[in-house]
Design a protein around this nucleic acid. Structure first.
Length: 564
DNA sequence: GCCGTTTTCGGCCCGACTGTTTTCAGTCG
């Protein structure tokens, strides 16, 4: 509601700082780890940063009565179709408000019409080119699918950097923005090259074969549109400013606002060229330099969301984030025994080539008929085959496991005697998403053979909301029973997500990263899972993948010895 | 609308690019 109010206030030409205050409060509430209702009940609304007397009163009214007078009043001041037009690129609040006031534009159709009949171009300050750009913005929005999953974008980023490298033999080339922060979806791609600003590299960039359209090209920055309507921005930055630029363009915006305020308080000025004391530049070549000026250790990009990382850095208690070299294996892998395409050996060999010491084969169970789920007999047969494979392949231990379905009545697809034969058991929900999912997870968690609950919220990025599940209750039982939660690294799942992962860690729950690979290439998704884990503040000790084979087996067995 | 150990008033992050102007406004990130 606050976000929407901000949009409308902006249209109305309200003080931009006021608009921003609404946006900030909205973000703070959105990222709150507990329910806002809880905060309200315990009379702590005014402890939230960005929530003062005014906004607290509005929240209070809403939670008490289900209505917010100010919201209704503000929202009513502009037609809602008009407010939706704010998302169109190149059309900002000023122009839109003017089109509304002077040309009676209320809908997208109205807007298209005043573009066509030339009246928009006649407004003061407007012209043919601006109108054309708005038209492009409209077209872009109509074709666009919104934010893109990170997993789809990373290979493209690699490709672009590889191509740029051919034009630039030395100098740093890094992605910035949400890609570098490993956010689960990205709106566009930012890339920074270390080179003296010249048009050469920018021209090389805009003439890349994958460039579908050139959106702009200046001396220091260029933008293109590639397939799938993904915008890629390239910036050329000189060596002595590269660190400052990388810091600046990595964001997040909220993190940078905090850092810049700190700079100002301490008498510095921070921009993308460096950190300045008066006119004198005192740093900017590396990111570390920037953070050092504030007596902070370098903050990993995945943490830069203003979710407490600055405070943690000030107090010297930043987490030592889990890293790729801490990862000894993958828990969740399918083979051609169910719906995967590779054999047990092929998956194991690829995993071994990645330096893993274990891989968990967890094919589907019988009720997953759509996925060729294994019958108990087939599973026992697979266990034998895995034993054989372990004798043949060296350097990696193949763990026998299963992704066993939690049926709608809460029972598991395999009997306990079967599960007892396995090294690890992952339990998951694949049907009845609205059918007592919380209770089913809790029942599964109490089963002594279940080591991990798979993709606990069931969301599919950009496609499906997820199950009706009370994650807090599930987590409580996981703590009690010593059950781990999965961080499913498949690019459309990333489930648990970053904030839930952090919540699980804080509750003391171990996280098992699994790629849910259905072929050998999918194993590379570990990179994505690791990104989310790091965004969730996970350290080596929070992640089951960092354990040795012996420790993993101990972890599964430990539960079997306890009684619930 | 928020915020405060120099402040309860007067700040609130800041630069590039584009298109429209002939010194700047709007938009974006």
């Amino acid at each position: 509601m606050f976000d929407r109010m901000a949009d409308v206030l902006e249209l109305g030409g309200e003080d931009p700082f006021k608009v921003n205050a609404y946006r900030k409060a909205s973000r703070v509430i959105k990222e709150l780890k507990e329910d806002i209702e809880n905060v309200w009940k315990t009379d702590r609304l005014n402890t939230l940063p960005g929530v003062g007397t005014g906004l607290a009163k509005k929240i209070d009214e809403f939670l008490k009565t289900g209505r917010m007078t100010k919201y209704e009043e503000i929202i009513g001041s502009f037609p809602s179709d008009l407010v939706d037009l704010l998302g169109i690129q190149n059309l900002g609040p000023k122009t839109l408000a003017r089109a509304h006031k002077e040309l009676a534009v209320n809908t997208l159709e109205d807007l298209k019409q005043v573009i066509q009949n030339g009246r928009l171009a006649q407004l003061p300050g407007m012209g043919q080119k601006k109108v054309e750009n708005i038209l492009k913005g409209i077209a872009l929005r109509e074709e666009s699918t919104g934010r893109i999953p990170l997993g789809k974008v990373l290979p493209v980023v690699d490709e672009i950097i590889h191509a740029l490298r051919k034009h630039l033999s030395t100098g740093r080339i890094y992605p910035a923005g949400s890609v570098r922060r490993m956010q689960e979806t990205v709106g566009d791609i930012d890339i920074l090259v270390e080179t003296d600003p010249s048009r050469d590299i920018l021209e090389a960039f805009t003439s890349l074969p994958l460039a579908r359209r050139i959106l702009g090209r200046g001396k220091t920055k260029a933008s293109i549109l590639i397939e799938g309507n993904i915008q890629v921005d390239l910036r050329a930055v000189s060596s002595d400013s590269y660190g400052a630029a990388l810091q600046y363009f990595t964001g997040s915006q909220a993190h940078n606002v905090r850092l810049r305020s700190m700079a100002k308080e301490q008498g510095y000025k921070l921009n993308e060229y460096g950190i300045f004391k008066g006119e004198k530049k005192i740093g900017g070549e590396t990111e570390e330099e920037i953070y050092e000026m504030f007596d902070l250790t370098w903050i990993p990009p995945e943490l830069r969301e203003d979710r407490g990382e600055i405070e943690a850095a000030v107090e010297g208690r930043l987490p030592e984030l889990v890293d790729l070299y801490d990862i000894n294996g993958d828990f969740h892998v399918h083979t051609n025994w169910s719906d995967g395409t590779a054999s047990i050996k092929e998956m194991a060999q690829k995993a071994a080539s990645m330096g893993y010491t274990f891989i968990g084969i967890c094919d589907h169970s019988s009720s997953a008929t759509y996925a060729g789920g294994l019958t108990p007999e087939r599973l026992l047969e697979q266990i034998k085959k895995i034993r054989e494979a372990n004798r043949e392949i060296h350097g990696i231990r193949i763990l026998s496991g299963a992704e066993v379905d939690i049926r709608t009545d809460g029972t598991l697809d395999f009997a306990d005697e079967i599960l007892a034969e396995l090294d690890i058991v992952i339990a998951s929900v694949h049907s009845g998403f609205k059918h007592h999912v919380t209770e089913r997870f809790i029942t599964a968690s109490r089963n002594p053979y279940v080591s991990i609950l798979a993709h606990p919220t069931g969301r599919i990025i950009g496609q499906r909301e997820g199950y009706e599940v009370d994650l807090d209750r599930v987590m409580n039982v996981c703590v009690e029973t010593g059950t781990a939660l999965e961080l499913n690294a498949y690019y459309e799942r990333l489930d648990l997500n970053d904030t839930n992962t952090r919540k699980a860690k804080e509750a003391g729950i171990k996280i098992a990263i699994g790629t849910d690979a259905h072929n050998t290439d999918h194993l590379d998704a570990m990179r994505l899972g690791l990104g989310v884990a790091r965004r969730g503040w996970l350290e080596k000790r929070d992640v089951l993948n960092s354990l040795s084979v012996a420790e993993i087996l101990k972890f599964s067995k430990r539960k079997r010895l306890a009684q619930f």
